[in-house]
């Protein structure tokens, strides 16, 4: 079977201000914090990209490992997360390098703004992942529900599993996402993950 890696650009997801402020360590908004939040929005306006590359793969689970078609892993936590799934989406998402540039600039000129941009970036990439999930759910020809996103570094799935995902999806060529020797992703506001797909009819039968 051939694996088709798709690439998709999304329009900007709507912003959850409370979530941004939470990431920035603010329980409630205040005048000064509000100014910073607005400045962060102004600086990022039109500068972020919302790209995802992804591939749907058949998976097999046995007592010893999970076979994701392109790689096998012994992770028990991932196994648990994928129970009942015949397929999974492997995906990588990024909001692009401009956010890193803006954060780096603010780090030199205004650490307060850097913290706010960092928080906004964290919220943006999560929002993109959520939007991607909505998209694949809508696109599916059968009724499905998705398992929680599971990323390398969660539980007992080693961070080094990133290498397998990067090689399989061709993240650098597809969406400009690269992995350095310390397994740090660049652009930094990026996510790679595995999402188990539950076909609802199958789930019912299993229950």
């Amino acid at each position: 079977m051939e694996f088709t890696v798709y690439k998709k650009s999304f329009s900007p997801p709507s912003i959850n201000k409370q979530e941004v402020l939470r990431y920035a360590g603010c329980k409630e908004t205040r005048e000064e914090v509000e100014l910073l939040f607005n400045e962060a929005l102004k600086q990022t306006e039109g500068k972020l990209t919302y790209s995802v590359c992804f591939c749907k793969v058949p998976i097999k689970i046995n007592d010893e490992y999970v076979d994701l078609s392109f790689a096998k892993t012994h992770s028990l936590h991932l196994t648990k997360c994928l129970v009942g799934c015949g397929y999974a989406y492997i995906f990588a998402a990024t909001i692009g390098l401009n956010m890193d540039r803006l954060i780096a600039k603010a780090t030199k000129t205004s650490p307060a703004l850097a913290v706010m941009l960092q928080a906004l970036g964290a919220e943006r990439i999560e929002a993109l992942c959520n939007k991607f999930e909505e998209y694949i759910t809508k696109q599916s020809s059968v009724d499905i529900s998705l398992k929680p996103r599971f990323s390398p570094g969660y539980g007992d799935l080693p961070l080094s599993f990133q290498k397998e995902i990067f090689s399989f999806l061709g993240c650098y060529k597809q969406i400009g996402l690269s992995l350095n020797d310390s397994l740090i992703m660049s652009p930094s506001k990026s996510v790679t993950a595995i999402i188990g797909i539950l076909e609802k009819t199958i789930t019912k039968k299993q229950i």
Binding site: A24, G25, C26, K27, R30, E32, V33, L36, S110, P111, A112, V115, M116
Partner: peptide, 11 residues
């Protein structure tokens, strides 16, 4: 005082 406020003062 929240972290962003602390930093704005520090700046």
């Amino acid at each position: 005082v929240y972290l962003p406020q602390l930093l704005m003062s520090a700046e």
